[in-house]
């Protein structure tokens, strides 16, 4: 293999791996902008993945599979919204519970599919002309439809959040729900909607993992990528554009681990599998606690993130 093929393959895989993170990350940004912290991404992603895989295996229809993953993710989001918005329970506890539940459910439903040959897969759709650009063209413009969707979602979500009336309401609810409420904005509906959207996009990320990126089903297929997406939101300071850069960076690190092993480079493989998670921990350390107090991250964080809104709470 020449270096051109190697580089192209590497970039392609990086973008593909990054897409999983990017979809989940944009979903989580929207959810967190409304003041709801969703730590259940890992669970939502894997549930989306397993439903997409099962639907493909039983019907062979990829569109139905994608719809199933969106629906499954949104339903998980609905559970989270019900627990944290309506019942006003702790967002942290609910998210953790959904992760444990989701991983368990997906492994249970998927146990008979481990090792089976997939009936259909998302195919790469080359974009005419653009895909012929050397190296970059192949990596960016010869990918599956979900990669293009994720790239389009970056400007769409940015404009939604920062340039539209709906976005102003979304940010107001996340910053200070009681102000929003006193102006007649429906805090509860807003939080429900964006938690559902976030869940659906995370489910979609799972679908890309199980019917696009991976060739077959395996136990715990997400392998912590939901958690990386949570950390990425902070890394990106709730900005979809930075989320894209961050996703591809982490995608690169994840792929690097896999590729270096394949080339037989004598570095213990555990070091590379650890890399993204170490990175995640570093990001979290710098965004919270002592380092984070005066940081940009703390300033950008939605003011009410993590706190259920209770209209009749007395201060």
């Amino acid at each position: 293999m020449g270096w051109v093929e190697v580089t192209t393959g590497f970039l392609s895989a990086t973008i593909a791996m990054g897409t999983v993170l990017l979809l989940a990350c944009i979903g989580e940004i929207l959810t967190e902008k409304s003041g709801v912290l969703n730590l259940g991404l890992e669970g939502m992603m894997i549930v989306g993945a397993v439903f997409a895989f099962i639907v493909v295996q039983t019907t062979g229809n990829l569109v139905l599979a994608i719809a199933a993953s969106l629906l499954a993710g949104a339903l998980m989001g609905l559970i989270h919204a019900f627990i944290t918005v309506t019942l006003k329970a702790s967002q942290v506890v609910s998210g953790l519970a959904l992760t444990i539940f989701g991983v368990g459910l997906a492994n249970f439903l998927g146990q008979n599919y481990v090792g089976t040959v997939r009936v259909a897969s998302l195919q790469a759709i080359p974009i005419p002309l653009l895909s012929e650009i050397p190296i970059i063209g192949e990596a960016l413009f010869n990918q599956s439809i979900l990669v293009y969707v994720s790239i389009l979602l970056v400007p769409i979500s940015w404009i939604l959040i920062y340039r539209t009336r709906a976005g102003l309401k979304l940010r107001a609810v996340g910053e200070n729900p009681s102000s929003a409420d006193s102006l007649g904005i429906n805090v509860f509906a807003t939080r429900y909607i964006y938690t559902l959207i976030g869940g659906a996009l995370t489910g979609l990320a799972g679908a890309y993992l199980s019917i696009g990126f991976n060739s077959s089903w395996m136990d715990s297929i997400t392998g912590g990528q939901g958690w990386i997406a949570v950390a990425l939101v902070i890394f990106a300071t709730w900005n979809p554009i930075k989320a894209m850069l961050g996703s591809y960076l982490f995608g690169f690190i994840l792929i690097l681990g896999l590729r270096l092993q394949a080339f037989g480079i004598e570095i213990p493989e555990m070091l590379f599998t650890m890399l993204p998670y170490i990175f995640t921990i570093v990001v979290l350390i710098f965004s919270t606690g002592k380092f984070g107090k005066n940081s940009k991250i703390k300033q950008r964080e939605p003011g009410s993130l993590g706190t259920p809104y209770d209209r009749e709470a007395r201060h």
Partner: peptide, 21 residues
Amino acid sequence: KLINAFTVTENVLLGDKGSLF
């Protein structure tokens, strides 16, 4: 009940109906 991260104008007009952008 003001949102510190918003401008005065944004705070005043929050919750209005009107054009999308």
